[in-house]
Computed example of a mutant assay.
Amino acid sequence: MFDHVKFGVGSYAASKAFFLKALEPLGVAVVSEGAPTYGVELVGPKSKASLCLYQTEEKPAHLHLAFAAESRQQVDAFYRAALAAGGKDNGAPGLRPHYHANYYAAFVIGPDGHNIEAVCHAPGA
């Protein structure tokens, strides 16, 4: 739905490492990178939208970023990878029927306190 989202982080190295590892199961990769104050651009397969991170001393507001997953297995893999990358649990993989019947998601808190989600809207197998 978006072209790109760019936000500042307190530790560029930690956030870059976290997002690369956490989003690897979703096929997200670096497409461009400059100095930390310019940042890094990450894009998923078959996507025109990108996520951009850059180093800042400002205290950014907390964000909720939801990444589309093609399967529930990708949501599970995102959750495991995000925790292994240093994320903190904010909701284990599972159905969230209060959103809709097939809303399968997992939530973690990233290095800067942002709520990071992977979600699959497809019915289970």
Rank of each mutant, 00 (worst) to 15 (best):
A13C: 02
P45E: 10
F2A: 02
L65P: 06
L51A: 13
V28K: 00
A13R: 05
Q55Y: 01
L65D: 06
S32Y: 02
G86L: 14
E41S: 14
H98M: 12
T37A: 06
A68T: 11
G110M: 12
D112Y: 12
Q74Y: 09
G87M: 13
A22N: 09
Y99V: 13
L83Q: 08
G110T: 06
A85E: 14
P60V: 14
K59M: 13
F19N: 02
R72N: 07
D3E: 13
S15L: 04
K88W: 03
G10E: 05
Y54A: 00
G87S: 14
D76L: 07
Y104N: 03
A101R: 14
H98D: 14
D3A: 13
A17S: 09
D3Y: 03
N90G: 14
K6E: 05
E41R: 02
I109N: 06
K46L: 09
A17Y: 00
H4V: 02
E58M: 10
P36I: 04
A77L: 11
N90Q: 14
G110Y: 12
P45H: 07
S11Q: 05
Q74K: 08
D89F: 10
L83F: 08
A81E: 05
Y99K: 06
E58I: 10
Y54P: 00
A49H: 10
C120G: 02
A35G: 01
D112S: 15
A82N: 09
I109V: 15
G94N: 11
S32A: 10
E24T: 14
H64I: 10
P25Y: 04
L53Q: 04
G10I: 04
V31C: 04
L20P: 03
V43K: 06
S47P: 03
F67A: 11
A122V: 05
H121A: 08
A14L: 07
T56Y: 15
G44C: 01
L42I: 13
V40Q: 01
N115F: 12
L83V: 14
